[in-house]
Write a protein that binds this DNA or RNA. Structure first.
Length: 107
DNA sequence: GATATGACGTCAT
DNA sequence: CATGACGCCATAT
């Protein structure tokens, strides 16, 4: 009898669901998404998924503490897209206190 | 299997 | 607050 943890496909699917669940004007971090998807420590895999799965709100995913991790022009575009959604910044980082999405927060 | 590579996170300087 | 070392997970060589 062997217990079977989630397969990669299932974890990836859950991560995708979490990313799609981010409403405009909110953001989440790579690590937080991985945890929300029940796959703690897989921040780097979240990145891979953002790159592979088309149509995801990639601009709503930032680094821990609200840091924009995309380099160069891509990072600039991300900030622009976020600002267009009403996201505010504190210096170079997203004001997480106001825009970080809380998964599974009821009421 | 060893090593290198990433849009990462945390902790120590 | 900026940097660097190290850990993390999967993939590519």
């Amino acid at each position: 009898m062997s217990i079977r943890r989630s397969t990669l496909e299932e974890k990836r699917a859950r991560v995708v669901r979490c990313i799609r669940a981010l409403p405009a004007g909110t953001v989440s971090s790579y690590g937080a998404l991985a945890r929300a998807a029940g796959w703690p420590g897989a921040a780097r895999q979240v990145v891979r998924i953002l790159q592979q799965v088309p149509g995801l709100p990639w601009h709503r995913v930032v680094g821990s503490g609200g840091a924009i991790k995309l380099p160069g022009e891509n990072g600039a575009e991300q900030r622009l897209r976020l600002r267009l959604e009403g996201v505010t910044f504190r210096g170079m980082r997203v004001d997480m206190k106001r825009h970080e999405f809380r998964f599974g927060s009821r009421s």
